[in-house]
Amino acid sequence: MRKTTAIITGLILLSFIISIYFYPLVPEAMATHWNSRGEVNGYMSRFWGLFSMPLLITGLAVFYLAIPRTDLTRMNLVKFGKHHEGYVIFLIFFLLAAHLQILLWNTGIRINPNAVLPVGIGILFYYIGILMQNSERNWFLGIKTPWTLSSDKTWKKTNRLGGKLFRIAGIVAVAGIFFPGFEFIFILGPALFIVGVTAIYSYLEYQKELKETESQIKI
């Protein structure tokens, strides 16, 4: 955890250093949002355009690093701690890359976010799949439904399924770059599908477990 904290702290400092460096290079009104066609449709003032992402990264880092200390099932978190820490580091790298793309765009280096965002999110989805497949029951990370939180067996089965589906979703998200204008369908579509499928699956698995338990009690 100390090594992970040091890496994350370094990335946070790097995000602020990059923002300070770009301060005199970007306009007063910064482009910060693009539509599905890659056209700018949102702006921020220079200060918020430069520092909203570093502040977001800082907040997320504090939140995720605090999870092991606040979760009532923290011993379960310890069991897949390296995957949790790897996820936090990768998430920060992803946000830092998105931040750099915004800054470069505002200095005249026009890298289309719709061409690179699906790749970043696809890799993120893939790693989330790995995290899920290695997770143990907890209140913060993984597929959390009333049924997975009530049973270790249902948790494991549901998150193993969700992990496989998210890894596939990561590949689908990357494929979105070949369909300009429809990238977000390739990202949101699979994600919503996984949410629905795993919710139903967790309910069915929990009911199945209850019936098996009742049968054993009767015997």
Rank of each mutant, 00 (worst) to 15 (best):
S151N: 06
L72K: 14
T107G: 06
F93I: 15
Y201Q: 05
T5F: 13
I143L: 07
F178C: 06
W48E: 09
N159T: 07
F125T: 06
T154P: 05
F94N: 10
L124A: 09
F22P: 04
L204F: 00
S15L: 09
I57C: 08
F22R: 06
W147G: 06
F179G: 13
R137M: 03
H99Q: 12
S19L: 09
N112F: 02
F186P: 06
A29N: 09
N106E: 10
L188N: 14
F94V: 15
W48Q: 15
E205A: 10
Y23H: 14
S150Q: 06
I89P: 14
V116N: 11
D152W: 01
I111K: 01
F51A: 04
I130M: 03
P180T: 01
F80G: 10
L95G: 06
K164Y: 14
W147E: 09
G163L: 07
F94P: 06
P113Y: 05
S52I: 06
T158L: 02
A98R: 04
Q207R: 11
E85L: 07
V174A: 10
Q216N: 00
A66G: 13
R110V: 08
I130P: 03
I128S: 10
Y126H: 10
K211S: 14
I128K: 05
R2M: 14
I89R: 12
I168A: 10
A191W: 11
N41I: 07
Y201K: 12
H33V: 09
V172M: 03
E85K: 15
Q216V: 11
G86C: 11
F94D: 07
F178P: 00
